[in-house]
Each structure stands twice: as C-alpha cells, then as structure tokens.
C-alpha cells in the first residue's frame, strides 16, 4: 500500500490529482466547520464585494460569503457525483461482465442495446429523466447513474473479455476450476484496476453533468450552494461583479481536473507493465 502511494506520488498527474482530490474531500467532510462565515447570512451592505481579508473570495448578490458557500456546496456537488458514478459503474459493470460471460448471441443483443442507449447524449437522457420524474436530488442522481451505465458496461465488457483470453484463465478452466472461482478469483482481480481508473475519470464528468443540470434549472434548487446553480444565479449579475461567476466556475473546473489527473495517475500505477 505504501509502495502504491509512493508510485502514485512519483508521477506529476498522480501527485497533483491526489492533492486536489484530498483537499476536496477535506472540504466535503469538514466544509461546514471550516467555513469562516454563515453561508446563508445575507447583508445588504456587503453585496458584490471583491476578495478581501474578511471575505476571501468576495460576496455575492445577497452579500453572502462566496468562499463559505463553496465550502458548504462541495458536499452536495462532490458526493452526488461520486455516488452517481458508483451506481452507474456497478450497474454497468454487472451488465458488461455478464454480457462477456454469456458470449454469443446474448452478448451481441446486450451490447447492441447498450450501443443504442449510448446514441442518446447523456445530458439529454438526464434532462428528460429529471424533468419527467421531477427535479430533486434523488432523481438527478438516478438520471446520471442511468446515463453513465452504458459506457461503463462497454468498458467492463472489453476488460472482462481480455481477461477471459489470458492463459491463466485457460489454465484454470483446464484444471477444472468452478466458474465462480474463475470469475471471482482469476478474472476479477485483473479487471478491477482499469474499471477503477475509468470510474475516477468519470467522476469529473459527473460533476460537470450535475452542474449543467443545476445550471439549466433541473438539478439543485435555490438557495442550495450547489456550484452549478451558483454559476447559473451569478449569470444575471455578471455585469456588476465577475467574481461571483468566476469562483464557482473555477471550483467546478478544479475538482474535475483533480479527478481527471488522479485517474491518469492511477492508470500508470495500476498498469502491471510499468
């Protein structure tokens, strides 16, 4: 484990990604305790303030401290993305691995159907589901999970198939091992790594997707501190102060970059070839 972390920190992507993601996780866990101001405390006198010693990143249209709002908002933004990606990955991996295991016609039908679902842009898919089910956190979560599942299914299937072709799996079959041993003990340990890498990178897409949903008014609702919603609300006041627009945008980008970098770092470390 320590060796693993050492190797992860050796690559620039891995090191920067880990640091960013750790900082984000700190904000998620302790955001409410670390926020210097009450994120809902409004002040008519302190509207549209630029960054200062008191208000690190300035204030918004109601005079609320932007930094505090971002700290609180980390929770809803990041946790939702991680959970949705997790659900999408589990569902997708189940479909993909099953399809690879079944093989033949069943595999073909399943994968063609997955392809068909993928021909609907995931944003559109999520938009429709959220709208039809009503905009709430749970529905948004569901929408993004469903939108992610087909892509993960494709990847897990490809990974499972390549593991299936390995000689050590052939050796296990020739030895007379039971199918569940082959899948769980021989194939799974060799498929988890690429799936984890893909999942990490997808967290950043999920963050962007949730933010987009909120931006279009179909995710989190005011006065939530969700970052996409903050950008959306700031749009009306951007002529007065660009800070209120820039900070939440940067926050979204930073977290997305963090997960992207971490994913690439993990890819290098988990690749047995290196």
């Amino acid at each position: 484990m320590t060796d693993f972390i050492k190797r992860l920190m050796r690559s620039p992507q891995g090191a920067i990604g880990t640091i960013i993601v750790l900082l984000v996780l700190v904000a998620v866990a302790f955001g409410p305790y670390l926020a210097p101001h009450d994120p809902e405390a409004m002040s008519i006198l302190a509207r549209f303030k630029g960054p200062s010693a008191d208000f690190l990143l300035g204030t918004d249209q109601y005079g609320r401290d932007i930094f505090s709002r971002l700290m609180i908002g980390a929770r809803s933004t990041v946790i939702m993305a991680v959970v949705a990606t997790l659900i999408g990955t589990v569902v997708g991996a189940l479909v993909g691995v099953t399809s690879a295991f079944l093989g033949g016609r069943a595999d073909e039908v399943i994968m063609r159907t997955v392809d068909a679902v993928m021909s609907i842009p995931s944003l559109l898919f999520a938009l429709i589901i959220v709208n039809l089910l009503g905009s709430s956190d749970i529905n948004a979560l569901l929408a993004v999970s469903i939108a992610f599942a087909p892509g993960m299914a494709r990847i897990s299937r490809a990974v499972a198939l390549s593991a299936r072709k390995q000689d050590f799996v052939s050796a296990a079959i020739a030895r007379g091992e039971k199918p569940n041993f082959i899948v769980l003990s021989e194939m799974l340990p060799n498929t988890v790594a690429p799936i984890i890498v893909e999942m990490t990178i997808r967290v950043s897409f999920a963050i962007m997707l949730f933010a987009t949903l909120s931006f279009l008014g179909l995710g989190a609702q005011p006065p939530s501190e969700e970052w996409g919603l903050m950008v959306s609300e700031a749009r009306r006041y951007m002529h007065i102060s660009s800070w209120i627009l820039v900070w939440p945008s940067l926050a979204i980008a930073l977290v997305a970059i963090g997960f992207n970098l971490l994913g690439d770092g993990l890819r290098d470390v988990l690749n047995p070839k290196t």
């Binding site: 987009t212 931006f215 979204i252 997305a256 992207n260």
Partner: peptide
C-alpha cells in the same frame, strides 16, 4: 486537462 474539465455552460 483544463479543457476537458470545463463544462460548456462555464
């Protein structure tokens, strides 16, 4: 890295 992390609305 920066490009891929910026949502269109941003």
């Amino acid at each position: 890295y920066v490009g891929v992390s910026l949502p269109e609305f941003v």
